[in-house]
Computed example of a mutant assay.
Amino acid sequence: MYPLKFENIYFEKIWGGRDLENFRDNLPEGNIGESWDVACHPHGTSVVSNGKFKGIKLDELIKLKGDELLGTQIPKDWFPLLVKLINAKDKLSVQVHPNDKYAKEVEGEMGKTEVWYVVDAFEGANLVVGTKDCTKEEFKKAIESGNFDNLMNKVYVNKGDVYFVKSGLIHAIGEGVIIAEIQQNSDTTYRVYDYNRGRELHIDKALDVVDLNLRGEKSRGLKLEGDGYSKTYYCLCENFALELYDINKSLKECSDIERFYIFTVVDGEGEIIYKDGSEKIKKGDSLMIPAALGSYEIKGNIKLLKSYVPNVYKAQKEIINNVMC
């Protein structure tokens, strides 16, 4: 096995733009809103773009390599993560996602909890994360009137900001951002308000799943300094963990036979070196570290997000041990 790259799966959106061209040269025509970079979903499945398995779809490779690819503790019947880059030139709809229980019963797939990392922030870049203090009745009246602005918790953001978006949290990506989004493998979104753009709304389902007690706050993270790199732990839940590696020389580590990793480059460039070769990586690239890869080294002046499905107890223990060292 080796670090896997994938073809980008692009989606045109009415709120999309062309900002991904700042670091990619393969955009199709149109206002591109989403790039699914590691995906194994009925609405889009990644195809390997490098090495021995080039041209093979991710679901086929999972059947072929099983534990070697995903790890011994990751179920093989449903790939757990979806990694995207989102370019918003205009604001997205005000929306909410269901939890696993509701989504399985109503939609036949997983719920959606996600985390956002701001890759680039342009003038006026903003997000909506939760509401200001409001009751369910006030929220219903806002839906009926379309007067949402005074209820939304709108925050202006900078490059490198991180926000955890739990299922049930009202949210919206505002204009002027490129977001790296790591989420549960689900494509279920309930739109509450869409600025009169004529798309379908899902009011009843949204009211079923919204939790107005949830608050969206910027993740502060826990940063640890190493020799030639720093590592920041941003979120840890049963669905995924997110860490940021800021490397100015190199970092060495080993894969985990129990689980795969996904790296998403959010700035700079470098290379990943493993037993049988190396792979150059740059801003906008995502690659998958198979569970059976073994030792590898990342060199360069580069920032990468590392996402994976954790053993929460083991991950907590690792964080505590690192803090106490």
Rank of each mutant, 00 (worst) to 15 (best):
N322W: 06
Y261K: 05
N196C: 06
I179D: 01
K91W: 07
K218D: 03
D211M: 01
N126S: 15
N22L: 14
I302Q: 08
Y156R: 10
Y156M: 08
S35G: 07
K76D: 04
I178P: 04
L169D: 07
V165A: 02
E253F: 03
K249R: 14
I178Q: 05
W78N: 15
G17R: 12
K275W: 02
D285W: 13
L27H: 02
I56S: 06
I143E: 04
R220S: 15
D204P: 01
S278Y: 12
Y10C: 09
S250R: 14
G300I: 05
T113C: 06
F122M: 08
P80G: 07
G124K: 00
F263K: 10
G277L: 14
Y195T: 02
D19A: 14
E144P: 00
V177F: 02
S295C: 09
D149N: 11
K65H: 00
K141F: 08
V155A: 11
D37M: 13
E109P: 00
Y195D: 08
D256E: 14
Y245Q: 01
S255L: 15
G17D: 12
A292E: 10
Y163Q: 00
Y296P: 05
H202C: 00
D211H: 01
W78K: 13
K252V: 05
K101G: 00
I170L: 11
P42F: 07
N185K: 03
I62P: 06
Y296Q: 04
A241H: 06
S219D: 13
L293I: 13
N158I: 02
I257M: 13
E34N: 11
N22P: 03
G33S: 00
N322T: 09
I298H: 04
H43L: 15
G55V: 12
R18S: 13
E318H: 15
G30N: 11
D256Q: 12
S230C: 06
L58F: 02
K52I: 09
G16P: 05
K57G: 08
N239A: 15
L304T: 04
V162G: 13
H43I: 10
E318M: 10
G146M: 12
N8P: 10
I170Y: 00
V155H: 07
K231P: 00
N50P: 11
Y10F: 15
K166R: 15
R199H: 15
W116Y: 12
R191V: 00
F23C: 13
D161H: 03
K249L: 11
R199S: 10
E138Y: 02
V38T: 10
E175M: 02
D37L: 11
E225A: 12
Y10E: 02
L287G: 05
Y163G: 01
K154E: 14
I289A: 07
D204G: 01
Y102W: 00
K76V: 09
E200N: 13
P28L: 15
D77M: 05
T131Y: 08
N185Q: 01
P75K: 05
E181H: 09
E21G: 10
K91A: 15
Y193Q: 07
Y308C: 12
E7G: 05
L69T: 03
L81I: 13
N87Q: 05
V119K: 12
D276Y: 10
G111Q: 11
L169I: 07
N322G: 09
T135N: 06
S286I: 14
D285I: 14
N147M: 12
D211K: 04
Y193K: 06
F23D: 14
D211Q: 04
S145C: 11
K136P: 08
K282C: 04
T188M: 06
V165F: 10
E225R: 13
L287W: 09
S295P: 07
G111P: 02
